[in-house]
Write a protein that binds this DNA or RNA. Sequence first.
DNA 1: ATGAAAGCGCTAACAT
DNA 2: ATGTTAGCGCTTTCAT
Lengths: 343, 343
Amino acid sequence: MEQPSTIASPRGAAAATIEEVAARAGVSRSTVSRVLGGGDRVSPAALESVRRAIDELNYVPNRAARSLASRQTLAIALVVPEDTTRFFGDPFFASLVTGINEKLASTDYLLNLFIASGDPGDKTTNYLVGGNVDGALIASHHASNTFLERIHRAVPVVFGGRPLVADLSGYYFVDVDNVEGARIGTRHLIDRGHRRIATITGPLDMPVGSDRLQGFRAEMAAAGLKPGPAEDGDFTVDGGTEAMQRILAAGVPEAVFVASDLMARGAIGVLRAAGLRVPEDVAIVAFDDSPVATTMTPRLTTVRQPSREQGEAMVDVLLARLAGAEPPHTTILHTELVIRETA
Amino acid sequence: MEQPSTIASPRGAAAATIEEVAARAGVSRSTVSRVLGGGDRVSPAALESVRRAIDELNYVPNRAARSLASRQTLAIALVVPEDTTRFFGDPFFASLVTGINEKLASTDYLLNLFIASGDPGDKTTNYLVGGNVDGALIASHHASNTFLERIHRAVPVVFGGRPLVADLSGYYFVDVDNVEGARIGTRHLIDRGHRRIATITGPLDMPVGSDRLQGFRAEMAAAGLKPGPAEDGDFTVDGGTEAMQRILAAGVPEAVFVASDLMARGAIGVLRAAGLRVPEDVAIVAFDDSPVATTMTPRLTTVRQPSREQGEAMVDVLLARLAGAEPPHTTILHTELVIRETA
DNA sequence: ATGAAAGCGCTAACAT
DNA sequence: ATGTTAGCGCTTTCAT
């Protein structure tokens, strides 16, 4: 060991620089840089000695310097404009992140996750706009316009879900056909012979929320039925509970189309507490097909949303853009009905 | 515009540089830099014109350049060496992240989250070692030594839980007193008059796993009781299910100390399926006091672990180190028993 | 209070 | 195949 262990300070030993590696290997900076870049146009001898020097010095290139010079970071941000409770509570994010992570694992890009709830000081935004990542994935939902637009202007972005902006042109996003999904789910209820059908929606200021309500209404209309009450369940278990209570207060429906599995869980709890059987007294079709759909009893009949594939598709589109290709601005994924026990 | 707009590419308009801001404001780079740094030793007039220029140009400092020069990034990494399933499935991480996030929100530091499951190419490690963050928080668990040590050597690190390294000296960590917690939980079972007590453990290659088993055994020994079977439930619902099945196969215990809420959920499912009542036939004390403890029926009697406080404490220690202070290497948090319905 | 000048550690032409 | 030369955009002495 030639390096004395200087490590009494918080940061470890002063990091070796490319210059030191070059000196030790008896070559120039450029040669070391070439080795770092894949070892092309480097003699076997030089390559060997550089590699050894890197090893001995425990050298890792300084990324700030590297990105400053090369204008790329090899990092991709996933921004989730939600608070931690929602982020961890909603299984949608788990699948989305899983899809993204897996797709990115085989590339040189590293995924940075930002849980940017309120972020008063715009720390996250400045970080992204400041050139710290090559591209960003945003699980849009109900983020404020300025926030989205600032990032979108500075760095290639792909949205998960339809971004909430005035003018969609120029934006890239991967969305699920929520209108279609809601129609499929509602249709199943109608096919089962139900007529008085209520719905529990997500927040209507979110595209996912309003799209699913729209699908519900469209399908009811197509069947010549008058839609029952629609109550906002906030995409949470508790919200679903309260929404169901409000619906019940107005009379017991034959069936309920619930716009997420989580809300369905809350709703079913209320139904049972009221002595109503599912599906015998009230049938339920939910939306998501997340793990809770099979974990709870009775197991949910639900509209499957391909969240993981959505994550993968987002990465595909972003990577294509970063590679200079021209992927389609809009990618739409489809849903399918999974019939289990609640309808 | 002296620079031709080469940017038909994905990224938006070329970002303004400090030089352009200076020119527009009619001052030097240095003055702009001072304004950026807080506006000290700058005349009101200059300050005003620089601010306007920044605004008009939509200027955001390039962070790579800034960190290269200033040797700090204002970013802090949270590294979770787990796969996404575990990360999202275990409520422990949700509270930990919540605590960390909240504590960091009021500082200038930005939290970068890395879900570094396998990471074959060491992308995450190189990112951290490459100086991309000022410090790192690691939810340690069962990460490989080399991984932890490489990061620890390069950047100030604080671990959540006791890191799995040969020599603990030099490491900073915030841990929960798991031995004590397990003793408290086990004691409660003994106090209730139970004698034949089994345990479902976490993986024993994790400090949390072995500590809780050790506490269970210590308390049983202190009471002069022979510990019942111990089965590894992997800290998951399914693992808990299987562990309980193995225990049952060897005979029905009077009580089980289960080292996590999630595993208790699986275990109770098995018990009920076997026609056994909880707590009448088999009493259960779990560990965590996560949201599932009150969500399920019956509600869990469990040892409360302050995960959120743990996250906050981790940030405190790291921030202290970054500020040049000398916080204690070890911080131990305590547990308390929460009595509900299962014991 | 302000500017000039010297890097931070790296990549990327451009020579050779 | 290798070295030389410029920067990348910023902070930071050091003068003034």
